[in-house]
Amino acid sequence: MNIFRLAGDMMHLFSIIVLLLKINATRSCRGVSLKTQELYAIVFVCRYLDLFTSFISLYNTTMKLIFLLSTFTIIYWMRFHKVIRVTYDREQDTFRYQFLILPCFLLALVLNNEFSAMEVLWTFSIYLEAVAILPQLVLLQRTNNIDNLTGNYVFLLGSYRALYILNWIYRFMTEPNYRQYLVWISGIVQTIVYIDFFYYYIRSWRNNEKLSLPA
């Protein structure tokens, strides 16, 4: 494992910790998109089916379990926790995610490396992850007062994707036969989705202003 990959995974882990802490400490999930969290739950469930079929490393298994568990915890809080669920921006979080799920699934049926259930679901998770942040970005645009932690959450998630690209470049140069075109293209699309957010995040940070995204 190279430094970019490890740093990327750590960013991903931190992003989730930040979100858990924010919701738990403030007893509020204001500004957090339940739709994005549910999309991530679908992504993780479909991708980590190999937990049952293959063992890669203790690190790998632990991280997968953390991602699954934390995402379901957040969803549970937002849907059922008696204090937190009241703070959910239901009226603002209206992104119709079926318009993401269906095309990604159809694309995975057509464009995959092997037409088997496991492989199609895995490919579907790759495509879906690329766009899963969209409901969250739309919700941030609609939120006038983005709190720091929610902004940091999205920034950390974006950093994780950017670091994965560096990881792929590094692996491509150091490992023979290391190629995964579908993952690379989806990953680049996913990172592009964040560019606009990055621009406003860094600008607000440099100017010492509160983060807000233009509608």
């Binding site: 990959r5 995974d9 490393s57 997968k64 579908l182 993952v183």
Partner: peptide, 10 residues
């Protein structure tokens, strides 16, 4: 095509 062994990323 991709090799199955490559699925070591998260």
């Amino acid at each position: 095509p991709e090799v199955k062994l490559l699925k070591d990323e998260l």
